[in-house]
Design a protein around this nucleic acid. Structure first.
Lengths: 221, 221
DNA sequence: AAAATGCTGTTGTTTTTACAACGTAAAGGA
DNA sequence: TCCTTTACGTTGTAAAAACAACAGCATTTT
């Protein structure tokens, strides 16, 4: 096994595992490493999978082909991050997406049942591993839920206010800085950038918000 | 403890647990039951929680108040279903939503750490419990992801086609029945019903789809 | 059977959004 | 310094969506 211990050690899945234990755990978990060439399928839509993948090197794309063959890239997975955990957890759910190496990549697979069923040795770290997996899923869940809350709003204005309100509450202040530039924010809210900029200006004119660059201020009237 | 064993036994969280074991497990998990009167807060936004709630009787609403005080009901939780698992799994994440009993309700709480840390007795069922929790979260994840895929599309037409394509692939057939009526579908895709109906008619005129009531047929041209 | 209700499609109008194009200012590199 | 690139706001136009209102049909209730 090549030396990807840094990647593994720093991954969220193996957080709080000591370096000495990691190697033993990987053995116990029966982790397998596979190399994929550019454009090679790692998982294909329709497949039933039982393993979680962790990118060790390269980059992996999650994508979806629709009924008419149109392909959409849903996300990119970088070293240390995992993929497939949702489908691996659902034994009867065929993959709704495909996973492809976008360049030559090294991927480590761990069977979900090996994660779930506690082994005899290093049990404490095993519990930790399960907890990390749960945290990863909870975090993803939260991210998705928040996005849905904003996007389900009908107008650009409402989407903006929903997002800004969340940021304000999160920062516990009516003034705060957002982590997106305009284009990124527009993509996140899935609206047109210029239309969004326009709407931001209107909100400013109507004295509902103030902003300069990425600093926003919400007003109560 | 009143007799809610049927509810618990039939819940997803306790699936595959034998009736004899459930009682012992609840003891081991230090499950607590609390009664809430109508409109009473169960969790409040901003709070840090460490317990998962299971509704045993009544109904519970997940809701959100924005910066300006506008309240939105996000979802309803019925007997046997759990809530708070996302925030309970994330030790540092303050609740972004509030949970309120919409009528007089009985709620059972289980501390997430009791679920995560394997006890000495009935270990097999404990593993099962963790697995069920993971399944619940994976399922929710999948549901959210699919919805986002559709909603992020810009036009009503694209949203419709994205949804219909998914249904088609799921049913492994170009003809299938959808589980929503028009209003429900419009709500799900967060578009206007009449505009959606209109778009459906156009798609039919353009010979891209056929439909009658809830039966759809997709065409490749 | 009659009445009421719910679901769906249709249409016209108004509002909102997307799109394209452009000007300006700031940032970064040669 | 000059040039290039990037980010952001602005505007006009065309397209799309929301909205409101209604008609036809089916289902349910009385």
């Amino acid at each position: 096994m090549k030396n990807y211990s840094d990647i593994i050690q720093n991954s969220v899945l193996f957080r709080n595992t000591t370096q000495e234990n990691t190697a033993a755990m990987l053995e116990c978990l029966d982790a397998r490493i596979k190399t994929y060439s550019k454009e090679e399928y790692i998982f294909e839509a329709g497949e039933i999978i039982s393993s979680v993948g962790m990118v060790l090197d390269g980059t992996v794309h999650i994508l979806k082909d629709d009924f008419w063959g149109n392909r959409t890239i849903i996300s990119e997975v970088c070293p240390g991050q995992i993929f497939g955990e949702t489908y691996a957890s659902l034994a009867n759910e065929p993959m709704g997406v495909s996973v492809i190496a976008s360049k030559k990549s090294q991927v480590m697979f761990i069977n979900i049942s090996k994660i779930m069923n506690i082994c005899s040795s290093a049990c404490q770290f095993h519990t930790n591993l399960i907890q990390n997996l749960l945290i990863i899923m909870a975090q993803k869940n939260l991210t998705l839920t928040k996005k849905i809350e904003h996007i389900t709003k009908r107008t650009t204005r409402e989407k903006l206010l929903s997002y800004l309100s969340e940021q304000s509450i999160k920062n516990e202040s009516s003034s705060f800085e957002i982590p997106f530039n305009r284009q990124q924010l527009a993509d996140y809210l899935s609206v047109d950038r210029s239309a969004m900029s326009n709407e931001l200006s209107k909100l400013k004119d109507e004295n509902i918000i103030e902003f300069e660059k990425n600093n926003f201020f919400l007003k109560r009237n």
